[in-house]
Design a protein around this nucleic acid. Sequence first.
DNA 1: TATGAATGAGTATTCATTCAT
DNA 2: TATGAATGAATACTCATTCAT
Lengths: 208, 208, 208, 208
Amino acid sequence: MARGPLTSPRKTATQERSRQTVNVLLEATARILVKEGYDKASTNKIAVAAGVSIGSLYQYFPTKEALVAGVVERHMREMLDLVRADLAEVATGPVDEAVRRLVAAMIEAHRVDPKLHRVLVEQIPRTGRLENIENMDRETHKLVRAYLEARRDELAVSDLDTAAFICVKTVEALSHSAVLGEPRMLRKERVEHFTDEVTRLIVRYLRG
Amino acid sequence: MARGPLTSPRKTATQERSRQTVNVLLEATARILVKEGYDKASTNKIAVAAGVSIGSLYQYFPTKEALVAGVVERHMREMLDLVRADLAEVATGPVDEAVRRLVAAMIEAHRVDPKLHRVLVEQIPRTGRLENIENMDRETHKLVRAYLEARRDELAVSDLDTAAFICVKTVEALSHSAVLGEPRMLRKERVEHFTDEVTRLIVRYLRG
Amino acid sequence: MARGPLTSPRKTATQERSRQTVNVLLEATARILVKEGYDKASTNKIAVAAGVSIGSLYQYFPTKEALVAGVVERHMREMLDLVRADLAEVATGPVDEAVRRLVAAMIEAHRVDPKLHRVLVEQIPRTGRLENIENMDRETHKLVRAYLEARRDELAVSDLDTAAFICVKTVEALSHSAVLGEPRMLRKERVEHFTDEVTRLIVRYLRG
Amino acid sequence: MARGPLTSPRKTATQERSRQTVNVLLEATARILVKEGYDKASTNKIAVAAGVSIGSLYQYFPTKEALVAGVVERHMREMLDLVRADLAEVATGPVDEAVRRLVAAMIEAHRVDPKLHRVLVEQIPRTGRLENIENMDRETHKLVRAYLEARRDELAVSDLDTAAFICVKTVEALSHSAVLGEPRMLRKERVEHFTDEVTRLIVRYLRG
DNA sequence: TATGAATGAGTATTCATTCAT
DNA sequence: TATGAATGAATACTCATTCAT
């Protein structure tokens, strides 16, 4: 895209500054959400924590909902990226390997920022733009469904949608509960065991 | 009902009136929680909806938290009672039958009041008395673990705790998602199918 | 005291019971005032502390103000009685002895229930029946003025009212401040000294 | 005003506006305290009286206590400043002159805003920042004690602390009672007389 | 006469959002 | 474009008092 020298679509200083501010605000929001919980995370507190005036905050995010949605989307994207990357690597591999990777990736994804994840899942009111918190699952569902479809003849499943639904929800729920509710289940010496068990659960279901 | 001569421990009018008020308040709270969500469910609104003065509300529930906790506990008890009753009936039966009952009961439990369930799970801040929302899972875990222990020699599981954890969380998550997120998966003609699938998932895992 | 049989103005059982209840209520009020302060001393709390129903409380005292006024009046009467008794004993004695007794009595009076005294003086809103908290001073003023009048020719005062005003207010203020603000000034070994000083202050003023 | 080259620390418009708001709030608070008494002086009423939104009130004073403390401190400072100024002028003068000035100053101080003074003294709950209402007396005590120390050899007092305590409390109590309780004692033609009497009381005590 | 459940106006305080500078 | 003072509706909760039983 960049032909000559200096023609590269460099961001203007202003654009750069804006991006900066947006970033700073999202990070401050995440921090405050974790520290104070959703209810006590006021936009004024967030602005102070970000070192940005409340006026500027509203320049970039017109409502509190938009601000929180920003954090949610960023967090979910991060998690999804991990899963997507891992799944891509095994997209053409055997089922047991693929499932194991899915499980490991999902656990890893929940470890990106467990405290933030908990707040987002447990406390954010699902209204407006925030209704779609479960988007990640929908995306994962698509990926898994596509994989199952490709491997259909190896599998003993009647209904691809139900199968994908079960795989994704199950792996997600177990990762979530293990990371957030039973951290001792994921101590170094036991992660392997846990991953094995979940993998077995899914593989047997799929293979029949 | 009172045959004997005046000895029956009949409730006083006063006690009866109090019990009434408490009930009315819990019901109104549930209704408002569903209609407005946790954040907008103000105690004043609830009192109006209950046809009770705000003063009376605070006579019975000293904080908003206590009021919501009352609703949570009642709802969780209802759900748990369903599961417990069904599980008791198959406590000595074969694994596949028991699992099928667990799955069916869990779906049924999530159908008691799905909208309320969603609000309670998604929006209630886990602080103080409200921290224990997941108690139901803990109770169910105990029941399932006891069952697995009794049937240990039929099962191919190494670690009872992990196995119980996986069973409960998985069935709970799938029921929850199906009832709340994919209601079409539970249309009359498909409930059977869905129950079959989840049962298969668990049974194969346990039987090895 | 009772000569004839059964003619004594004996209180009926009912009257006795009423008097009891009133007493219990006044005592509970004083207790709660000391423990919680005026603002947090609610009539409901007082009723509970008195072991009396809120309904009964309002049968005997139609408003919170009346209840507190009861306590104020009782307390002020107790204090005043002490002063009056001591003053009566020296009503015909020499000035220095009388003043010393006034000072001692005033200190004693402030020691009857200093914590209650503080609450009554510092926190009770002076409205309605409560406006007259300073009544005690007015009574004492009369007594002292009468004494000064009787001894007028020994004294070097031009104006009896001003002199009485100065005596009473001064002794009262110093007793109050010593008892409530500088308790170390009234330790056993120093009471004498303090009493001496205050006595000297007043005697010199009066004697000229 | 700004002669020099732009270096004058001129207040920004913003700072000026803030200072204004604070002032307006303190004045409204004093007004409402006088008109309604402490208990009925709600923050909302005060905000309305100040022509300021309730939100702004809380921007500057985080609690009702802080607001009232602001009024108390300002009022006590005003009173103290009067006393301090007068005392400074006679710090090296003879005892009778000094005492007379102290008495006159104290009366003057109580006349700054007698109604407000009454409310502050009689109704403010002594908790937190408000505990120190009697600070003025403590300050005055220091000043008087220092004076007495300097003049020690002219005086017939054994104990400087007790003497200072007696002087300050007595003069304060008499001024307070005269201004607030017996205003007729301070009518034009009688102030002189009253001041004389109080001065005599103290001077004789000190001189022995 | 005693009871205590019920009342509801009133309180201090918060916080998302606006807008003059 | 950035700032932060200002806004005011809304909130959880209290308490003196009433009145049906």
